[in-house]
Amino acid sequence: MPVRLKDLPRKRYGMPGNAACPGCPETMGLRYVKMALGDDVVLVIPAGCSSVIQGIAPKSGINFPILNIVFAAGAAAAAGMKAAFEALGRGDVKVVVWAGDGGTGDIGFQALSGAAERNDDILYICVDNEAYMNTGIQRSSLTPPGAWTTTTWTGKREPKKNVPLIMIAHDVPYVATASVGYPQDFIEKLRTAAKIRGFKYIHLHAPCPIGWRFDPGLTPKIAQLAVQTGLWPLYEYNQGKFRVSPFSRMYRRPEKRVPVIEYLKLQGRFRAALKNPELVKMIEAEVERMWRWIDALEKSLNPAEEARRITGT
């Protein structure tokens, strides 16, 4: 069911005066998690910007009960916490992992893969700001090709690791991609995930003004451009069914997409890449690669719908 703005809870769910940078996508995302899931939620946060946003004791800048844990153990700690809640008879409490891209795709990956394989009843949200922003913008395996970081001076040459597809390959009940540029879509996906028992994974694309080198007022605009250029397609894999989300559906046709260059030129991290036509080509090829995967998955996972589309009935 589509989310309407007027129906969202009026309560002030954010925690103003926290230590996040102006225009931070993580505090935006955390608000949407609270709006969608309500109060019975516990966060598990591996090291990352969200550990810093909480600030110094005795005040916390994030409006959730939080367990801070080491980088490598986000999903494992959450699985244990969920088991403890069930033992206490509080199975209704939702345990959510809020991890960065480093805590998901690099350092925390074995814990994530393990929890997915055991099908532990947790919701894992990866807040993907595409580098280790908290420690000073170092490259991660989820940094896109062409992007400058302090460890890739001339632009990264390797493609971005496609974690949502890896999670689909784990055959977990629910995998989705989302973006802070489309909060209604994110809230809808969170609500869908909350109803499902088992391992849920949502990959949230979160443009970081500091690390991506853009004006802090443009956070939602950049996030929307990533979807509109086709670089970050929004889709959902729900118990064997694959579906491209409404906000992304029109961009599956290449002629409808915004040129990738529009997305690149707003960000300082692509300044070097823009001077190098080879790197720009590589980023454009990335878009094609992404959509080829989506087409292949859609065809193989929804054979009946595909047949209907071809015959036009």
Binding site: M15, P16, G17, N18, A57, P58, K59, S60, G61
Partner: peptide
């Protein structure tokens, strides 16, 4: 246990 509670202004008057 040392616990922090959510409260506005954890980083001062931003």
């Amino acid at each position: 246990a040392p616990l922090s509670r959510p409260e506005p202004g954890s980083a001062g008057r931003t």
